[in-house]
Each structure stands twice: as C-alpha cells, then as structure tokens.
Computed example of a mutant assay.
Amino acid sequence: MLSYQHIYHAGNLADVQKHALLCFMLDYMAQKDKPISYIETHSGRALYHLDAAEAVKTGEAEKGIAALAKAFPKDHPYIRHLATVRELHGKTAYPGSPLLAALCLRDGDALHLAELHPQEHAALTDVMGRWGANIHKRDGYEFAIAATPPTPRRGFMLIDPSYEVKADYDAIPKHIAAVARKWNVGTIALWYPLLANAAHIGMLAELSERFPDALRHEVRFPPVREGHKMIGSGMFVINPPYGTADEAKRLSRLFA
C-alpha cells in the first residue's frame, strides 16, 4: 500500500516529539569529531508547507508545532533548524526528518534516504538532492538491511513507517533485530503511534524483550478530531546517545 502522505499530519504533536528527540540526538553525536552515517527508511518528502490544503484540512499543526514552539528553549536544535528552514523556504515551511538530519550533520557525514511512494520520492529527490543525500526508491525495511553496516560505521537510523500495513506491527521487531545484528554499534530509533486499539502493545513488548536497555519514550495527547485513533506518540531507541533520557523527560513536561 502506498496511499500515505505525511502532508496531512506535518507538524503535529507526534512530529514535535519525534523531531525534537531526533535533533537532540544528532546534535549531540555531531559534537564529537567523528563522522556519522544517517539512514532513514521511510523518508517522505522532507519539506512541507503548513498552509497547503492538505495540512489546513486536518489542522494538526495548529495543535502541534504552532502551539508548542515557544515552549522550547530558543537554542534547542529543533527550534534552531526550524528557523533556518523558514528563512530558506518561508514562514509556513516545516522540515521533515531528512531535512532536519541534514541540518544537524556536517561535511564528511553521510546521508542515506529511502522512500518508495512515487510522488514522495520525487519530492524528496527535489529537496534533498542539493544536500548531497543518497536517495533510494526502495522498500524501507529491505534498505535498512542493505545499508548496514554503513561507512562511516558510527551512525543513526530512523525507522518511521506509516503503519498503514497492519502487518508492520508484527514484522518490525524482527526487522530491527536483523539490523542490530549487522550493526550493533548503531543508534536505531523507531517512531510508533499510540493507538486507542492498542495495536502497538505487542510490538513494544517484543522489542523491550529483545532490547531491554533501549530507551522507550511516550507522550499522550487527545485525538486531534472525533474518531481519530492516535492518542499519543512513541520513540524506541537502541543505543541512545548520552543525555537522551534526560531530554526525553524534559520533553514529556511540554506535553503534560
């Protein structure tokens, strides 16, 4: 299935959690004088405009980044990079994780992005080609295996599927275990929705059993509209950089 397009949800509360943690972790890793490989399995289009008809239709950004931006310290890497994107692309621009990652990385770091959806892949190529990204039109889970271990070996992988294929919940722990076997030093981060029907519970139980030392961070929020099934957002991080647990606690307070 290839129906999902993130423009309807860009800048929502789940994005705020995911992107704030992502920027913190990459910013910390980039402070060390060692190169980084960044790998993303389900990249989307990398740049969104919150005045687009699709975003306006759902109004999710109004309750997300528009409501919480001022709650962050001005020097937080997420807020700094959001400001940079808006200087480049206009005040309604919102960066997806590939663009945020590019802004966190340095010359000499490697950027590998996969996206299978034809329209999203075309938009991703248009935005991220100028950043020197290696862009692949490929199934994200297959790419995760093919791309690891990367060069440089030190690095970060974001797995952020749409979950429109319900079998993902059963398959993801096995995919991540396979990646971790090949790349035991990598930081591997999975974003997942918290759903009213508890579809995520089994997946998280298996992941926690396989990776007992991983960081699990979840925030909860009301459904954005009547009948909406997502009631929160989570990140499961294997080999989290130093300080990520404390940053997660600070972030939780913004959602309280």
Rank of each mutant, 00 (worst) to 15 (best):
V127C: 10
A110S: 13
T151P: 00
H117N: 12
H117Q: 13
A196D: 14
H121K: 04
A205V: 09
Y169L: 03
N197Q: 07
Y163K: 05
I176C: 03
T151G: 08
D168C: 08
F143P: 03
L113H: 02
K166D: 13
F211Q: 09
I172L: 15
G132H: 05
E209G: 13
W131I: 03
M203N: 07
N197M: 00
H112C: 05
F156H: 03
E115D: 11
D160G: 08
K182Q: 13
L215N: 12
I172D: 12
A199I: 01
L215C: 12
D126L: 13
M203L: 06
A180L: 01
H121V: 03
R130C: 07
P150K: 07
A147V: 03
V165D: 11
A146Q: 13
A146I: 08
A199Y: 01
P150M: 06
R210Y: 01
A180K: 13
F156W: 08
R138I: 12
M128L: 03
L116H: 10
E164V: 11
R216T: 14
Y141Q: 08
H112V: 02
G186F: 04
D160W: 08
I135Y: 00
P118C: 04
A133S: 02
E115T: 11
K182F: 06
A196W: 04
S208R: 14
D170A: 15
M203R: 10
Y163A: 04
H175Y: 14
L113Y: 08
A123V: 01
H200Q: 15
I159K: 04
W131P: 00
D170L: 14
P161V: 10
A167P: 02
L195V: 08
